[in-house]
Design a protein around this nucleic acid. Structure first.
Lengths: 130, 130
DNA sequence: ATATGTGCAAATCCTTTGCATAGAA
DNA sequence: TTCTATGCAAAGGATTTGCACATAT
């Protein structure tokens, strides 16, 4: 259940958090804060913009959401946190998940001295066919 | 020469643009607008913030610079426009180029219907070793 | 002349913050 | 109580914009 999921990640399951979590984790998706706010209100959830931001940031820290910094103007939150990749439509801004197994690497370079690998993100940019 | 390079990309080579281009294309680097402004002024170039933004945006449209949207707070401009990849240090925000040949792919998925591939960006996130 | 580039300051937009109130342990 | 979450409005910061002036063809 959602409450347990929050709790197991160290996020106190408050009323707003539960409602927002329900919405966000309903299916794999990429939403920005404004979309979460609108979707929440459309469902009659009473919540402020500040709380939406607080909550999304909290979820990111807890590892419940992944931040996607791909768009120039706003941050997207990915409800799929396990490793995977993305198509990014530069015309529409749309992001589509690519399962991890769909991309395989041959050579991968060694990381810079003093650092360790944190993850690999592959973004395949696409545009609408003319 | 720099002026010809701008001209060949359809950018009228004005005084400020030449100075900024000189600075930016001096070596492969990733700079944000503020850094370009500071660097320019440090060299005695008289230029406004608005012109820095105008110019960087123009260079991006011309294909002289690549926009890097990786940082939550600001856009970086990559003076290397040919295809390549990056290490991204999540602790420092530093970006390091990875030559194209250093990464090879096994499988790559087909792009979504109605779209065509525009490019592939691989970002290897690293963090400072504890 | 005529069109375009530049500088300045104000405007914009996403995101964060300060503070008072509400809610839970 | 005591601690934390929430809401609201204001603040913050990167980027854009409007407009007057400068510059170049």
């Amino acid at each position: 259940m959602i409450a347990a999921r929050l709790a197991s990640h160290g996020a106190k399951p408050t009323s707003q958090r539960l409602k927002l979590a329900e919405l966000v984790f309903e299916r794999p998706q990429h939403l920005c804060a404004e979309q979460v706010l609108q979707a929440a209100r459309a469902r009659g959830v009473r919540v402020s913009k500040a709380t939406v931001y607080n909550t999304l940031n909290l979820f990111v820290e807890c590892g419940l959401l992944r931040e996607l910094v791909v768009d120039r103007d706003r941050v997207y939150y990915d409800s799929t946190v396990h490793a995977h990749h993305h198509f990014y439509n530069v015309d529409t801004g749309e992001m589509i998940d690519i399962p991890l197994e769909s991309v395989s690497f041959g050579v991968v370079p060694a990381v810079p001295a003093g650092t360790e690998q944190d993850g690999i993100d592959v973004v395949i940019r696409v545009r609408n066919r003319a």
